[in-house]
C-alpha cells in the first residue's frame, strides 16, 4: 500500500543505502504531501534512522536520490531542519540551553556573520515553544533527558524551516516532554509545516501521527494512518519476512562485494 501524492514536497526515489557494504535499505521509493505529521515506523534495525540520515545527506546512498520541494537538498537546506538522536551527543559539553539553540541560527548567519539580537529573540521564542524558556541559561548537563530533547527541538525550530526530520524524539522522555512534543507537532503541521518523525513504539504511533511510513529494510506501506495501520501491514512490518534480504546483506558484507 503505497499512496501516491500529486504535489509532493518530499520525493524519495529508489533509495538503496549500505553500511560497510551491507545494504540496510532496499529500493525505498515514496512521496509525502505537505502539512502532515508522518511517523517512520518499524522494529529495531529496520533502517529508520538510516532513512532520514540519508535524506539529510549524512550518509550517501548506493543508488537513488531524494528531492525536497522538487530540488536536491543542497539547494534548499535552509528550508529543512534535522533533529538528531539525543544520545548522539555528549551532554556534558560546556554550553547552556541557549547556546545550543543559537546553533540553529548558524546557517542563517554563516561564517562571516555573528549571532545578533534577532537571533537571540528567535532562540527565546523557540525555547518558549517547547516550554523551556525558564531553563535558557541552564547548563545542558543539568537538564533531564526530556528537557535535553526539547532543547534539540528548539534548536531545529530556530532554523525556521518548512520541513523537519526528527530522529526518535519520544525515546525515553517523561510525560511532560511527550505532551510538549505532541503539542508542537500538531501546531507546526496546522501552520503548514511538515514533520517527519522516526518512532519505534507501535502502541503510541496511531495517536501521534497522521501519516505512516512502515519500514523494515524495505518499504512496506506509506499513507494516511487509517489506510496503513492494518493488522496485515503491521504483521508484514514486524513479522520476520526478511530472511532473504538479511542473508543477502550478510553475503555482500563478507565478500567485500564492490559497490
Amino acid at each position: 500500500m503505497i499512496k501516491r501524492v500529486d504535489n509532493s514536497i518530499l520525493e524519495v526515489h529508489d533509495l538503496t543505502v549500505s553500511y560497510h557494504n551491507k545494504p540496510v535499505l532496499w529500493n525505498i521509493d515514496f512521496d509525502l504531501p505537505s502539512g502532515i505529521v508522518a511517523g517512520i515506523i518499524g522494529p529495531n534495525g529496520a533502517g529508520k534512522s538510516t532513512l532520514i540520515k540519508s535524506i539529510m545527506g549524512l550518509i550517501s546512498p548506493d543508488q537513488g536520490y531524494t528531492k525536497i520541494f522538487g530540488q536536491p537538498l543542497n539547494e534548499i537546506r535552509s528550508r529543512v531542519s534535522y533533529v538528531p538522536q539525543r544520545e548522539s551527543v555528549d551532554w556534558d559539553f560546556p554550553a547552556s540551553a541557549m547556546d545550543v539553540v543559537l546553533m540553529g541560527r548558524y546557517s542563517e548567519r554563516g561564517f562571516w556573520g555573528r549571532y545578533n539580537d534577532e537571533d537571540r529573540k528567535i532562540a527565546k521564542q523557540s525555547l518558549e515553544q517547547v516550554d523551556m524558556l525558564p531553563f535558557a541559561n541552564r547548563q545542558i548537563s543539568q537538564l533531564s533527558g526530556g528537557q535535553q530533547q526539547r532543547v534539540f527541538l528548539a534548536r531545529a525550530l530556530a532554523q525556521q524551516a518548512d520541513i523537519y526530520f526528527m530522529d526518535e524524539p519520544f525515546a525515553g522522555v517523561d510525560a511532560a516532554t511527550e505532551a510538549s512534543i505532541l503539542n508542537l507537532l500538531r501546531e507546526m503541521s496546522h501552520s503548514g509545516k511538515t514533520m517527519i518523525v522516526v518512532h519505534h513504539d507501535l502502541q503510541s504511533a496511531y495517536d501521534y501521527f497522521d501519516w505512516m511510513i512502515l519500514l523494515n529494510r524495505r518499504l512496506i506501506a506509506v499513507g494516511p494512518k487509517a489506510d496503513v495501520f492494518t493488522d496485515e501491514l503491521i504483521q508484514e512490518t514486524y513479522g520476520g519476512n526478511l530472511s532473504i534480504l538479511a542473508t543477502l546483506g550478510n553475503i555482500m558484507q563478507q565478500k567485500d562485494y564492490p559497490k
Binding site: 540520515k53 539529510m56 545527506g57 549524512l58 537546506r77 529543512v80 531542519s81 534535522y82 538528531p84 548522539s88 551527543v89 555528549d90 559539553f93 554550553a95 545550543v100 546553533m103 548558524y106 546557517s107 534548536r155 532554523q159
Partner: peptide, 9 residues
Amino acid sequence: FDPNYAQSI
C-alpha cells in the same frame, strides 16, 4: 558538540 547536525545544515 554535534557534527551530524553541523553537516545537516
